[in-house]
Simulated scan of single mutants.
Amino acid sequence: MARRRMIYEGKAKILYEGPEPDTLIQYFKDDATAFNAEKHAVIEGKGVLNNRMSEFFMTGLSQIGVPNHFIRRLNMREQLVRMVEIIPLEVVVRNVAAGSMAKRLGMNEGTELPRPIIEFYLKDDALGDPMVTEEHIIAFNWASQQDIDDMIALALRVNDYMSGLMYGVGIKLVDFKIEVGRVFEGDFQRLIVADEISPDSCRLWDIQSGRKLDKDVFRHELGDLSEAYTEVARRLGVLPRNGATTKGPKLVQ
């Protein structure tokens, strides 16, 4: 087999050159990171779970007309995706006060917000992914006003879909982040959802107990991350309820 050309390696995924023009192979690693990669572990099976769940969410979004980069899953850890020009911003949608928002505004974690709140963060690990305003985005030419409007519209549609889906399986969608990329069709440009949607990029709480089912389990040492992710996958029907769970974490010093 010919050696594949790696395009990019991030904290949780590797991108390889795809087999078709304007495609990439997205490989999901087992690495878990927190606090800007200051905390790191390898959680056996995490990449498999995130690959399957991201496929599930992206396929559902396509079915309701939300454009995204997913083409098809190739195997347990890889999927074929469309090549996009990533806008260097994380788009965060918050339904409930938690994490940095709760700390920044002195709010009690779990406070329901009066409406979904959208925040933008610059993708820059060296700076700790700082929050930026629309004025910053336009002034520094990271995106245009039309791009911002389109990103907000995409994020709210994803929120509507994900909130309803999670509520149906007893999970509260507290917040999540997406990345957005540009694709060009002739002279026409449009924005689509890219990267991944998984418990790595969402805060998910059990509605009845408040138990956390997302990466906060790893951040704050609240239990077994693989068990939390497996529970989400089972509730969504991505994994059979009587299937084997993944093994526990293997810490990397």
Results as ranks from 00 to 15, higher is better:
residue 98 A to E: 09
residue 82 R to N: 14
residue 95 N to I: 02
residue 130 P to K: 00
residue 117 I to V: 13
residue 130 P to W: 02
residue 120 F to M: 01
residue 128 G to K: 05
residue 91 V to D: 07
residue 87 I to D: 09
residue 98 A to M: 06
residue 123 K to C: 00
residue 139 A to Q: 09
residue 143 A to R: 03
residue 100 S to C: 06
residue 113 L to D: 03
residue 83 M to E: 14
residue 94 R to I: 07
residue 89 L to C: 02
residue 80 L to K: 02
residue 146 Q to D: 15
residue 135 E to T: 12
residue 131 M to Y: 03
residue 121 Y to Q: 03
residue 124 D to N: 13
residue 116 P to I: 08
residue 82 R to L: 14
residue 142 W to P: 03
residue 112 E to W: 13
residue 88 P to H: 00
residue 96 V to S: 10
residue 93 V to S: 13
residue 148 I to M: 12
residue 147 D to G: 07
residue 102 A to G: 08
residue 114 P to F: 04
residue 139 A to G: 04
residue 108 N to M: 15
residue 120 F to D: 10
residue 137 I to T: 02
residue 91 V to K: 05
residue 108 N to A: 15
residue 98 A to W: 11
residue 129 D to G: 05
residue 139 A to I: 05
residue 139 A to S: 13
residue 128 G to N: 05
residue 137 I to H: 07
residue 88 P to D: 03
residue 123 K to L: 03
residue 127 L to H: 00
residue 128 G to H: 02
residue 129 D to F: 01
residue 140 F to R: 13
residue 117 I to H: 11
residue 84 V to K: 04
residue 98 A to D: 14
residue 116 P to G: 05
residue 80 L to Y: 13
residue 107 M to K: 10
residue 145 Q to V: 08
residue 100 S to F: 04
residue 143 A to K: 03
residue 129 D to C: 03
residue 107 M to E: 10
residue 99 G to A: 11
residue 87 I to E: 07
residue 143 A to F: 02
residue 147 D to K: 01
residue 111 T to G: 08
residue 129 D to R: 00
